[in-house]
Design a protein around this nucleic acid. Structure first.
Length: 350
DNA sequence: AATGCGGGGTG
DNA sequence: CACCCAGCATT
């Protein structure tokens, strides 16, 4: 395939990026480790959300070695609220691989870097191009949207193999001398100009090369099928406090949803019974009071939560923790919401 | 190829 | 409410 105006397209995009790019924390460095962290955080996550997490993360884990040595609980606390927590565990596994197998130097080729945990086709290309200026494709949702419009590609981007079409296109288009600015330029264009709805074509540096703009209906692309069926689960969440002001906590399993995060005990409606629960923990409930009722939406399921504050007898079973200890634990957002309510209304002793 | 995996922003 | 977002691992 041979695109017309490739040279002009490259130049317009790269020049626009170098002038208009946002000042973001990870754009002050080309350290592969720091670029790596930023790219993992940015997976499926918006820039504005990532910024404070990235800054805090770099303060605590400025080097690959410090991240490799960190306790997982401390690491997860830095990821708390960011979501997709396996990213954090995979990132730590990845930096440990770099220390073990590559002398602490992040590999500069796709074959080796792709072996690292959590580094897929996009992240590999992003690190290689941004940190090492290697002309490698880095195709994410932004790039597929931008190029579907520029090149008039109507393939369904929800179909996995469609990404190969865009990767091949980037290999043709990418500026071999300015791979970093070219790839970032495509993504920046998608974020600022070539947005999903109402793209700002009049501000676009490459509109004269854009098929969708010239045809007049850029918002019709990309084509994306797919709908996900949402599952619903209802839970009672029990905040149990003993007479010493300690609260019963549970650690979630090491696999699956919210792996290794901490929570107040949860009873699934129609599945878990309060009797079994109080039996397991040898708890005797003295009083019970309704807390928050709310809904928490994940990408693939919805939790309907009823939360209760319960005064209980002392017991020797389970993890009864002080508020100070609880503050150090990584918890999912629904639990943070309940915990915040507890602190605000000062139910517990403290 | 299909599914599981968070959470927040937007219209 | 639906849709989107700098994806990857597992099956």
């Amino acid at each position: 395939m041979n695109y017309p105006y490739v040279t002009e397209f490259r130049q317009s995009l790269v020049e626009w990026f170098n002038v208009e790019k946002r000042d973001l924390p990870w754009r002050h460095t080309t350290d592969p480790y720091q670029i790596w962290v930023s790219e993992v955080m940015l997976q499926q996550t918006r820039v504005d959300t990532v910024i404070p997490y990235y800054n805090r993360f770099m303060e605590s884990f400025p080097t690959l070695e410090l991240l490799a040595e960190a306790p997982q609980e401390y690491l997860l606390k830095h990821w708390e609220g960011l979501g997709y927590y396996s990213r954090a565990r995979n990132l730590q596994a990845g930096v440990r691989e770099v220390l073990e197998n590559y002398g602490g130097v992040v590999p500069n080729n796709r074959h080796e870097i792709s072996k690292l945990k959590g580094v897929g086709p996009y992240t590999a290309g992003a690190i290689l191009s941004i940190a090492y200026n290697k002309p490698e494709h880095a195709v994410d949702g932004n790039v597929m949207r931008v190029l579907s419009r520029v090149l008039n590609i109507h393939d369904d981007i929800a179909v996995p193999k469609t990404k190969k079409i865009f990767e091949a296109a980037v290999e043709e288009l990418i500026d071999p001398e300015n791979a970093s600015s070219f790839n970032q330029g495509l993504m920046e264009l998608g974020a600022l100009i070539c947005t999903p709805t109402s793209p700002k074509c009049l501000l676009c540096p490459v509109r004269e090369y854009c098929t969708a703009f010239n045809k007049g209906e850029p918002e019709k692309l990309p084509i994306k099928s797919k709908k996900v069926k949402m599952k619903h689960i209802t839970y009672d969440v029990l905040v149990c406090e003993d007479d010493k002001g300690r609260i019963l906590m549970e650690k979630r399993p090491a696999e699956g949803l919210l792996a290794n995060l901490w929570q107040f005990p949860m009873l699934e409606h129609g599945k878990d019974s309060i009797d079994t629960f109080s039996n397991d923990y040898a708890i005797k409930v003295q009083s019970q009071q309704a807390l928050l009722t709310f809904k928490h939406v994940f990408s693939h399921l919805t939790w309907h939560i009823n939360s209760y504050f319960m005064k209980c007898d002392s017991t020797v079973k389970g993890e009864w923790l002080t508020p100070e200890q609880i503050e150090l634990l990584p918890m999912p957002v629904p639990m943070l919401k309940i915990w915040q309510e507890i602190k605000t209304k000062s139910y517990c002793l403290k």
